[in-house]
């Protein structure tokens, strides 16, 4: 399950370095990694903080970058909705992109099943430990990390393998192709909103395919 570790570690390291190099300083960088805990939103807010943007602008921007988590939380609701609210919200705060991906791969069935909450908590802990330890290393050793190696691309490559492993059927293929095309086409949008556009396009494509499949089923002669 920890196959994604090296890619995650590379991104954690790069994010840690980016925080100190933006001028945050060690203390505030540590505060950021242990509270914000959302790599893409952190990276998006660094230049805004450095340029002294209004605090509300920074928070609103981070929320836009985080909008995909709103959609993910509807997925988590199905599996974690039975937990008491306190535990649900704590888990929700800790569950990132990779957690949902790994969770979906392991629990194929619909709805809530026994053991899901424990699996989600274990995954959240694993991702947290890898991310925070490498991020802290990046913060403390920022001058030693060779950024010119393009380490961030290691994260991209491991995401590529994870994406391929999710292409289980035709629906997934179509969703992935639609999402890739939309994300590239909408790349000029600010605040990583191209990711949200791509998710919406893929979900709509999936809905249309399901609808078309149903129509085809209805037209087939019955025996």
């Amino acid at each position: 399950m920890l196959a994604f570790g090296p890619g995650l570690a590379a991104w954690g390291l790069v994010t840690g370095v980016a925080m100190t190099q933006s001028g945050l300083g060690v203390g505030l960088s540590l505060l950021m990694t242990f509270t914000a805990y959302a790599g893409s939103a952190q990276l998006a807010s660094l230049p805004l903080i450095a340029s002294g943007a209004p605090i509300w602008v920074i928070w609103a921007s981070a929320f836009c970058v985080n909008l995909r988590f709103v959609i993910f939380s509807s997925q988590w609701r199905v599996h974690l909705g039975h937990l008491p609210r306190g535990r649900r919200v704590l888990l929700g705060y800790l569950l990132a992109d990779l957690n949902l991906v790994m969770f979906q791969k392991n629990w194929k069935g619909e709805g809530h099943q026994v053991g899901q909450a424990r699996y989600a908590a274990g995954g959240a802990a694993a991702v947290w430990i890898v991310w925070q330890s490498t991020s802290v290393a990046g913060i403390l050793l920022s001058s030693l990390v060779p950024l010119e190696w393009g380490l961030g691309f290691a994260g991209t490559l491991s995401m590529l393998g994870i994406a391929y492993s999710l292409l289980s059927d035709r629906t997934a293929w179509v969703a992935a192709i639609v999402s890739a095309a939309a994300a590239v086409a909408a790349f000029s949008l600010p605040l990583k909103l191209n990711i949200l556009v791509a998710i919406a396009a893929a979900v709509v494509a999936t809905l249309v395919m399901a609808q078309a499949g149903k129509a085809a089923e209805a037209m087939r002669p019955r025996h």
Partner: peptide
């Protein structure tokens, strides 16, 4: 499909 779409959308660009 949202998580797959998100991962692809982060990776492709």
């Amino acid at each position: 499909m949202a998580p797959l779409a998100a991962i692809v959308a982060i990776t492709a660009p």
